[in-house]
């Protein structure tokens, strides 16, 4: 899936967040990546990712949005839409 420049920036920031959350240096984020693909990605780590995303992008994700997330691509889309709205 081709990314826009904004999406590239979002993926770069998400990669840093994921590397920090999972204490790794080698995370490769693809839109399809989901919790089942990453060892240790449980409900706590999910919250940690959400908290970090909110802080990094200065946005607030609501309950419906978080519930609808199935994969990294969904997350990047939600962030993109929120950041664009300002």
């Amino acid at each position: 899936m081709p990314h826009s420049a904004d999406q590239d920036k979002i993926y770069a920031a998400l990669t840093e967040i994921f590397n920090d959350v999972f204490m790794r240096d080698d995370m490769r984020l693809t839109p399809e990546l989901s919790a089942k693909d990453v060892p240790g990605w449980d409900s706590f780590k999910q919250i940690e990712i959400m908290v970090s995303v909110e802080e990094r992008f200065a946005i607030k994700l609501n309950t419906r949005e978080i519930d609808s997330l199935k994969c990294v691509g969904d997350l990047a889309c939600v962030i993109g839409a929120k950041v664009a709205k300002g």
Binding site: I17, D20, V21, M23, E48, V51, S52, E55
Partner: peptide, 12 residues
């Protein structure tokens, strides 16, 4: 330290 860094340091 934020929450994530706190967790990372603690885990190590």
């Amino acid at each position: 330290l934020d929450f994530t860094r706190t967790n990372a340091l603690d885990a190590l």
